[in-house]
């Protein structure tokens, strides 16, 4: 079984976000970019499925600017086999990406698509669900555990208030939550080897997909700043303020 892992290049989550002065968006020039942390977890899980003998090949796909190939190389260095870049400078939305991924699935015929539950830039949490819908496949979202059996994936999902276990008919789309696994670091020799792995460069038109945005982002602003607070000198004073000034306890 082949496993397809979509990965996204995002602003490094440890970097402070700067909103552009003209409110047209977030300033990403000269910013450190990285693989979306949830995608890293998906890559790790796919490689583990291969190590356990459940997967024969792990194929990475990323849709985004030309530099997204660095993100694919990162995943190849972790242990994935090859990559597909869908180069686009357009701001892609989950629906457009899901349509691109559907086309990739039709070409690659994977038994499983493993991807992050959300990208930490736009925080949409949609692409996996949309891909599953377009394919008519089962979906396992926010998974913290996966066991692949014959034709079935038994998954545990993180839901509000606890955990839920489902059996999914394969092929399926799975989206990863934080608890699923701890992504490995790529070793230097593997980073070198990754440079030789195959990476196909394509464009949305090659897949026959229209990725014109449906939403118009009118402006992006800084969140309101919090007013400066006060220092209290004792626990008694803290409790007094919370009770009588803030009235929250």
């Amino acid at each position: 079984m082949k496993v397809l892992v979509p990965v996204k290049r995002v602003l490094d989550p440890y970097v402070k976000v700067r909103v552009k002065k003209d409110n047209s968006g977030v300033d990403l020039s000269n910013s450190k970019m990285a693989m979306n942390p949830f995608c890293e977890i998906a890559v790790e899980q796919a490689i583990r499925l291969k190590e356990q003998g459940h997967a024969s090949e792990v194929v990475l796909v990323s849709a985004g600017p030309q530099q997204a190939q660095e993100t694919i190389r990162t995943g190849l260095a972790m242990g994935a086999d090859r990559g597909i870049l869908i180069e686009s400078d357009e701001a892609l939305e989950p629906l457009g990406v899901a349509k691109l991924l559907k086309a990739v699935v039709e070409q690659e015929d994977p038994g499983l698509v493993l991807m992050g539950k959300q990208a930490v830039d736009n925080d949409n949490n949609q692409t996996g669900q949309m891909l599953a819908a377009l394919l008519g496949w089962s979906q396992g979202t926010f998974i913290s555990e996966v066991n692949v059996q014959d034709g079935t994936a038994r998954i545990t999902r993180e839901i509000d208030g606890g955990l839920e276990t489902l059996d999914l008919k394969m092929p399926a789309v799975l989206t990863t939550d934080l608890r699923l696994c701890e992504p490995r670091y790529a070793s230097l020799p593997n980073i070198m080897k990754a440079k030789k792995k195959k990476l196909d460069k394509t464009a949305p038109a090659d897949w026959g997909v229209d990725v014109t945005p449906r939403l118009d982002v009118q402006k992006v602003e800084e969140p309101p700043a919090r007013e400066a607070g006060v220092k209290v000198s004792s626990v008694q004073e803290l409790v007094d303020k919370l009770r009588n000034e803030a009235k929250v306890i």
Partner: peptide, 19 residues
């Protein structure tokens, strides 16, 4: 919610809508 996110993304794609 976890149910809302799980269901609505799938429903929106069936409707060909970007939520």
């Amino acid at each position: 919610s976890s149910t809302g996110k799980n269901v609505v993304g799938r429903a929106a794609a069936l409707m060909d809508v970007q939520p």
